[in-house]
């Protein structure tokens, strides 16, 4: 038997001027092949898909161009500045991405450390300010640090994207407290980006009350990406519903679920 979730899921996710049909956003990197990627993304139900800006490889066919595989009328293309280590580089990549002509959104990454891929928050703030004043809707990938998140909001970012754990690590949500604090203190949407490893990670992350999750490796590198895509879509929705429903309090002692009275003598 299949059941559909009919409980109210609250308002949909809106960032700047765009309302998304899913709170799950997915990356398009690291798939074994493009057909697998397309099936996994479809199964996930995500609307926003991230893409990277790179040189055209002049020795190869256009097979690597993502637009040969994903219909931009069906998906919201969210370009990133992955691989950029300075604000100047990130700004350059963002402008190239916008010129492709799909939207003004940019998932802004300014990386500060090669091993951990943790953000350079100074560069991130600098690039955020420049891109906001240039008309971009900036979604800033950042640490799970409240003060940085507040500064990014002040800089005019359309959304702030704190990490659950490092990119591609699959370690899950390492600090629920900091994510909850960021969500509580900021007004712009909070999209947790990076670190989710499996469906329970996604569910627990959404239960913190955040507005959405962006993930790539957890789906792309699963043994079966299509099935994991569906699992992640369900987990994000499930976690959101659980958050809206409000969980029961934790107790240190048992409380019986069956009546204590009416027992036989």
């Amino acid at each position: 038997m299949t059941t559909t979730v009919s409980a109210p899921a609250g308002h949909p996710l809106t960032i700047a001027n765009h309302t998304f049909r899913s709170r799950l956003m997915v990356g398009t990197g690291k798939y074994a092949d493009n057909a697998t990627m397309v099936r996994a993304i479809e199964a996930s139900g995500a609307e926003a898909v991230t893409v990277a800006v790179r040189r055209v490889d002049l020795d190869r066919s256009q097979e690597e161009a993502i637009l040969h595989h994903l219909d931009p009328r069906q998906y919201f293309l969210l370009a990133n500045t992955a691989g950029c280590y300075t604000a100047a580089d990130a700004i350059r990549y963002a402008r190239l991405a916008r010129e492709a002509g799909f939207n003004e959104f940019i998932k802004l990454e300014v990386i500060g450390d090669e091993e951990t891929l943790l953000p350079d928050v100074d560069g991130l703030l600098e690039a955020s300010k420049a891109l906001v004043s240039d008309g971009f809707q900036v979604l800033a990938y950042t640490n799970d640090d409240l003060v940085t998140a507040l500064r990014l909001e002040d800089a005019g970012c359309a959304a702030v994207m704190p990490l659950a754990s490092p990119i591609g690590s699959g370690l899950g949500l390492t600090n629920p407290y900091t994510i909850r604090t960021i969500k509580r203190r900021l007004s712009v949407p909070i999209i947790v980006d990076a670190g989710v490893g499996t469906a329970s990670d996604a569910c627990i992350t959404m239960e913190q009350g955040v507005d959405g999750i962006l993930m790539n490796t957890a789906i792309a590198q699963a043994d079966n990406p299509e099935t994991m895509g569906r699992a992640m879509g369900l987990a994000v929705e499930s976690g959101r519903l659980a958050y809206l429903a409000g969980r029961m309090p934790r107790r240190q002692i048992a409380v019986p679920s069956s009546p204590a009275h009416g027992m036989l003598d």
Partner: peptide, 10 residues
């Protein structure tokens, strides 16, 4: 001259 396009990424 730089010629760029969108590729898979996260």
């Amino acid at each position: 001259v730089e010629l760029v396009h969108f590729v898979g990424g996260g």
